[in-house]
Design a protein around this nucleic acid. Structure first.
Lengths: 343, 343
DNA sequence: ACGTGCCAATGAAACGATTCAAAGGCGCAC
DNA sequence: GTGCGCCTTTGAATCGTTTCATTGGCACGT
């Protein structure tokens, strides 16, 4: 029945031409006369020929795929970045294949190996933990690599990332411009660099503003539940001790705070208390009071990562570049009085 | 400098052995004496040799990768399914590479082409729209395919999916068992098969129960906002017309309903009104009142899909199987009175 | 009629691995 | 000392494609 896959030779035989001619139809149609081209195409269709990419690549020495390894495909940041990267790659005749490391160094290593063995054109990696030896070894063997959402402190490879200090700054600046003065930052003790950066930016904004004060509150985790605990504690303060603006290190915390503040004290948001989150997760727009947030320019990052990679593929001599984007503020009802209060 | 990639021949030369010996070290270490093996391994490490998968595959005629094409990597269902599939594949010595069709038939087609050209062992596909000609063509050429989250009505290939009728049934059954009788189903007019199935299950449960009534309410979309509109309308009814249990076709609708119901009328959930959603999205557990929901057995589906595929790869003669899973009920505070009311 | 160009098509070499039949080396038994 | 068998290693064939130097054929100008 279904003996073995159809090869270019089978096509050549059926069309009554040489192997090379079939190859030309596939790769340089202009070199082949219209009649022959049609005949060959007919044979291809009739036989259901599919080019063997392994052989093509072996001969050509180059593939047309880019490997993308992310920390968590479930994270909207990465999935949307992947989408953008795919689009950009497609425009350049390449295809992105995705590997999910799930924050597991072993899985990351496995994908790196697989992709390297497949001789992908290059890789986009959001590395687990430190930019490891693995990446350095890759680069040494001439594999183009661009880091995503992380910079290489040693500038060995290009990268795209986001300036979280700027993000923290713009969040708090926004609160200050809305007339808030008693600002609370909700973060975690755990030493996430990103949280620390956001706090640094927040502090900077407060320092620049006479009469503004910043208080730092630590949550147990970066979750809605932890945010709710923080919110309860804050909502139970005496009126004089209440802040008038809260900046949370991520949206989950902010949503938790919102739930507690609205339900326990019946405070009004944003009138009594302005609230701002970070990351702009899908749900933020649908919170009871739509949440103002700070968003990474995901699509831009995905496209830029692919562009940097292609740049390096085409001109390996090109200088490594660290592209750092500013995030953008997404204003919603939790900091801006709505036209009509929802609900 | 970095002339061209290191080949097996370079390794052989450096180690002073034949090419075949290096290949044996890689693939059949037992056939090689310990001394030689070490010497070859040393050369591999020194040169940074990475096997060229294209050549290997060309000769072997088979790869060790499985292609997975999903509708949306951002959707937690798919990302978690992908994770499980990867794990299962890894246990069997294969690797999953992911393609995101983003519901776009063109992108789907492109990934199918790329994967077929790469001669993946097989594909797992959650197809866009109908199970197209594409899949049939694939199968005709001997490519193993397993459908994910959709059955093939013509039984041409195996599939894993979920029984949404059963899901709807168990959701409403749960409400009935909690003593609710005036049930509202919130869905959409748009003819999603899945929504229709859930409603069918709901109806079945109500029909089996004397004295229970089911009312169907149509939302404009499957979003939080649309749910909020529905919730407002329901909350403003006269007390006698209020339902005591609401089953929403997905969690977003349910969360919208919850927001409206809690805020406008100050109804208590679940005391006055029990509420149940569908899909068990991440956020449901963190809603103001944690939302009872119906969950697909994602991990199980991912693993099963890979197993079906491997089965077919090993024994192409094996019968196609349509595996249909029952979803599971996740009970939370929105239908079960909590020990301590939150907030 | 003959040379000149040009376009189309050919066929063999090459890519880098795996595989397998055959050769080589060594020890052991007779 | 010779033969046998086993284990290790070798080297050539092979996979399916691309590439490129070469050939074949045809029209045109002289």
């Amino acid at each position: 029945m279904d003996s073995r896959p159809v090869s270019i030779k089978d096509v050549a035989d059926r069309a009554g031409v040489a192997i090379g001619t079939v190859s030309n139809v596939l790769n340089h149609p202009a070199r082949v006369s219209a009649a022959t081209r049609e005949r060959v195409q007919g044979a291809i269709d009739a036989l259901g020929f599919v080019r063997n990419d392994a052989a093509r690549q072996l001969r050509a020495g180059q593939s047309r795929t880019i490997g993308l390894i992310v920390l968590d495909v479930g994270n909207p940041f990465f999935s949307s970045l992947a989408r953008a990267a795919e689009d950009c790659a497609a425009e350049n005749g390449s295809t992105v294949v995705l590997g999910d490391s799930g924050q597991d160094p072993e899985r990351e290593a496995r994908y790196i190996d697989v992709f390297e063995q497949q001789r992908v054109q290059g890789m986009l990696i959001s590395p687990v933990g430190d930019v490891g030896l693995r990446v350095e070894a890759l680069r040494k063997r001439g594999m183009p690599v661009v880091l995503v959402d992380r910079v290489d402190p040693q500038r060995r490879c290009s990268s795209v990332s986001v300036d979280d200090v700027a993000g923290g700054y713009m969040a708090v600046k926004h609160l200050l411009e809305a007339g808030r003065r008693r600002i609370v930052f909700v973060g975690t003790r755990a030493g996430y660099r990103q949280v620390a950066d956001r706090l640094a930016g927040a502090r900077q904004a407060v320092d620049e503003h006479d009469g503004a004060v910043l208080e730092v509150v630590e949550a147990d985790a970066m979750t809605v539940l932890a945010g709710r605990d923080v919110g309860e504690a804050i909502a139970q303060r005496r009126p004089g001790d209440l802040p008038d603006g809260i900046f949370c290190a991520n949206d989950l915390l902010a949503i938790g705070v919102m739930q507690a503040v609205l339900l326990i004290r019946g405070l009004r948001i944003p009138e009594d208390l302005a609230l701002i989150g970070y990351d702009d997760i899908d749900f933020s727009a649908s919170a009871v009071v739509p949440l103002t947030s700070v968003r990474k320019p995901t699509e831009l990052m995905g496209r830029t990562a692919v562009e940097l990679l292609l740049e390096e593929i085409e001109g390996p001599a090109s200088r490594r570049r660290q592209v750092i984007f500013d995030p953008e503020l997404v204003e919603r009802g939790s900091t801006t009085a709505p036209i009509r209060a929802v609900g």
